[in-house]
Design a protein around this nucleic acid. Sequence first.
DNA 1: AAATATAATGTTACCGATAACCTTAAATTA
DNA 2: TAATTTAAGGTTATCGGTAACATTATATTT
Lengths: 341, 341
Amino acid sequence: MVTIYDIAAKAGVSAMTVSRVINNTGKISDTTRAKVRRVMEELNYVPNHMARSLVLQQSNLLFLLITDITNPFYTTLARGAEDAAKKHGYRLLFGNSDENVEKEKDYVDTILATRADGVLVAPAGDPSLPHLETLRKHQVPFVLLDREVPGMDSDIVLGDSKEGARKLVDHLTSQGHRRIALINGSPYISSARLRLEGYKEALKLNDLAYDESYVLETAFEPRSDLSEIESWLDRMDPLPTAIVAGNNVLAVEVIRTLHGRGIRVPEQMSLVCFDDLGPYSEIDPFLTVIAQQAYQFGYLGMQMLVERIQERGESGLPWKKIVLPADMIVRRSVAALPLRK
Amino acid sequence: MVTIYDIAAKAGVSAMTVSRVINNTGKISDTTRAKVRRVMEELNYVPNHMARSLVLQQSNLLFLLITDITNPFYTTLARGAEDAAKKHGYRLLFGNSDENVEKEKDYVDTILATRADGVLVAPAGDPSLPHLETLRKHQVPFVLLDREVPGMDSDIVLGDSKEGARKLVDHLTSQGHRRIALINGSPYISSARLRLEGYKEALKLNDLAYDESYVLETAFEPRSDLSEIESWLDRMDPLPTAIVAGNNVLAVEVIRTLHGRGIRVPEQMSLVCFDDLGPYSEIDPFLTVIAQQAYQFGYLGMQMLVERIQERGESGLPWKKIVLPADMIVRRSVAALPLRK
DNA sequence: AAATATAATGTTACCGATAACCTTAAATTA
DNA sequence: TAATTTAAGGTTATCGGTAACATTATATTT
């Protein structure tokens, strides 16, 4: 590896002069600058980021931790974060925790070890608390995305999950549905809890009874094993006429399972969910969804993060919380039921 | 930031002893080890990865550079790479170049600067050559994914693009199609070139004339502006009865454009493409595709990369090339045409 | 002409860790 | 008992940069 000392020797100057040329600091004669530049090109010099960060005590690196890299919600969010980071001159790297608290911990270690200047975290869930505490303890600025973690105050960008769930249920009841089931993520994830709450509230407001057997709490990330959904469907008697899915992944798995049983959507079962399916929903605009503004989650979150970093912990501004609206897109996955009674 | 010197002072030992405890090297008494460990926990010590890498001359970090983080092909590939990296005890970070050679250069700089131990690269295209040369010059082991770059030999994982294109065209002709158009990625991308070649060859074998106006060479990544596709459709006279799309993104854009014109797929236009739409194709198995084994691209590529790294450039084994088969999944996006003449 | 300022560069110490070598006391062997 | 191992730990130099201070020659001011 070529170092500034190699450059210095070949150019007949001191290492410090090379450093000055690289960083455009101090006073350097044009002759020397040109000479050093030439030698740098000749030897293909690349600065050693680690040595630099070590002495400067900052890395200029930012991280984005997402929980499911195959989910269009998070990849769109990533694009937003990327654009905002670039705008502010930061480098952004991604990590994928796979909704797995262990992997998340590994990434937090990597983040601390590489002395990242800040992190955007979509936490795996409530059990992420210790990781966030670690970040806080080490004074790494972070902004949470999509999910709150009880016990941890911070800047955060959220979607209006409760309102979203209410809208979905209201839409279903407006189409005549009265037996409405919910398949949701883990109760250790704040957004899942709020969606359940919104669901319950909307049922009550529509004079519908809450039936525990109509609710399945499982995982937000894709599973190859659909048996949990299968047995849930077996358990419900009578079957609901409509299902609310806590996110896009669950919606897809429900559809797969239903298709396996020859149940068609929406003819025999209506379905709505949170989060769109990415650009691919355009092929066949089918699912009625709460289309969260994924790109904004990333973009606004990154903006808050950069502000925090640049403020350098001096002022201790209060934590900011952005709640993005839950907009419903009505498409074709809900059947209108004949009014009964 | 807590350092080993803080630990050492508080534990009443030397920094070297702390280092030994951390790395489980040398001989340390149980008493001392326990004492050091306790202090480390008390002070929430996290090793400084940069200082460590600086002296060890290796970072234990691997990178994966993809060109479109919103494309399920690449995210699935990323999952494969991740799993393989984890299996070998490496940390993996992601970068997204957005099919943009400039951004790709930034990432290459980051990679060099952080002294990554190796990189998995899906290159943006032929103009990526200088970046790869930079990596080579700095002796960073890398494995190419999905695309060849003329002028650069290396380990590589490819799909059988030519064969894939032939299969798609053959399938279309077998259904009676004789006017078959192609929308493809940039000719500066090897896979796009091979797909065009396969398309031409298959036309010839089927006794169909090659008509230049039936081919549109554009970009593989999503564009908000569909006017290029619009004017291509305007230009073709008569319209083709079927379109081959060079990847999933293009297929989606074609569908959007066609829908905008009230042209239905497959009733009025048949459509096939490379790469599946991720889990979401399961909702409505619609598009007939060449389903490349995205996960294997990442998994096998990572395996080759790790082998290269561990071999440490000593033996200079010949470059390895893995060509994954092009398997077609026939679904419903192709209409059977009545036989004419 | 002497005093002072300034441009251009060099020297030294340090960031946080580890390798390589060194020291010391206790344990083992001859 | 003297000689030799061994266990347990310390010292020093180094990785590749940069901040802070020092130096030198030239230019400017009085």
